[in-house]
Design a protein around this nucleic acid. Structure first.
Lengths: 215, 215
DNA sequence: ACAAAAGTGTTGCATATACACCCATGG
DNA sequence: CCATGGGTGTATATGCAACACTTTTGT
């Protein structure tokens, strides 16, 4: 294999993270406004180049930490995006990830060297995105919906306690449809991924709910 | 993004195909003996570099055609392998694929510029492989076993007709366990991916089976 | 008629869905 | 005491697993 063969010279690897949260019963995604070319002024997903000494997972964790200040959260690698023209500078392969977290824990800087601004957007009100990130985001949403019940990917959405009605609303907003309250409860409880904390909600203005946590 | 930044210079993309067949009731994988460095003399899976003007799927189809003479078959992309040291020459990311085909249709050359030899190996009698291909192969086998019932990936194993007992044996050899004949038949038939041809097996030395084909 | 393998049907279990009632709180 | 929303149970349907008998061929 010849390193200078123009057929496969100047290739690179992107990691791209679709980071979701549920805020006020709405599924939102974290976007960053580019300050530099290419796609200056456009919004994009969290992402960047994978360094030579990193696995793609390590690169994604580094990007997540740099852009959100959060570490050690669960994420899922879900697909590869390899259109040769997806990045204008050189041929970049993208590895796509899905992550979910509590929006209040994300501490992003309004001004950094590479990013101008950052914010959460409702997934049905997303602006035009740079690169092929609209395609990647749509694939990420599809992946999240398919795997929401067979993965504890929502763990980080409630880092401490939560009530089942809260979790129920989160599922409904992600799936975009209603789920029966009672069946939802049974299903989650017999999955053994959540447990009763033994405490109750307080001052809710209604009958208090039990508090649960992910195990 | 700086194209000469040593942090992400000289990266490349491999596509790696674990091509399976079922021969004499045994699951086998297609391996090629390397004729050149690196890993000269070692056996490896089908694979190669992705060119700059190709998607990874296109690169995999090209590699499959170059190594087997077969085109237009179903394959599944299943994971990414990104250990920085997985290839000795430079940092190469690998995209893993699974494919299945009729071994008699594979026309490989015993001598080519890049490969010395090629053969089918029973998956539990595989020699030491070059690169990280043992890890990739194991992941491919796991993927094949998990997805054998929810995909028509076996279509190419029987390009023309087949009997249900034949298909049954193929499933058992891939999964490495027994499956109930009657439940297997019901399950396959109600998936609507196979159909009765209307003909019968001939001269089988036993009660003839109906012939089916994939739709 | 017998051995070998193909073809078919029934039953039970587990999981998911549909659905109705009671309970605790704040006002 | 009433409105709101939380908590629980039961009946039904569907999918998968366990299992036994009949049929067709070659010898």
């Amino acid at each position: 294999m010849d390193l200078n063969n123009p057929l496969y010279k100047n290739q690179g690897i992107h990691v791209v993270l679709s980071l979701f949260t549920v805020d006020n019963g709405k599924l939102k995604v974290f976007l960053i406004k580019r300050k530099n070319e290419p796609f200056k002024g456009k919004w994009i997903l969290i992402g960047g180049a994978c360094y030579n000494n990193e696995t793609v997972d390590a690169a994604m964790e580094r990007e997540m930490f740099e852009k959100t200040g959060i570490q050690n959260v669960k994420y899922n690698r879900f697909d590869v995006f390899s259109n040769p023209d997806r990045s204008p500078l050189c041929r970049m392969l993208a590895v796509g990830y899905v992550g979910v977290m509590d929006k209040n824990r994300v501490k992003y800087l309004k001004e950094t060297a590479k990013t101008g601004d950052a914010d959460w957007f409702m997934v049905d009100r997303v602006p035009a995105l740079g690169y092929d990130h609209e395609e990647i985001l749509q694939a990420a949403i599809d992946y999240l919906r398919i795997h929401i019940f067979d993965s504890d990917i929502l763990k980080e959405l409630f880092p401490k306690h939560f009530t089942l009605p809260e979790l129920h609303k989160a599922y409904e907003s992600i799936l975009g449809k209603k789920l029966d309250r009672r069946n939802f409860r049974k299903r989650l409880l017999q999955q053994n991924i959540i447990e009763d904390v033994g405490l109750m909600e307080e001052n809710a203005g209604k009958k208090p709910s039990k508090l649960y946590r992910f195990v």
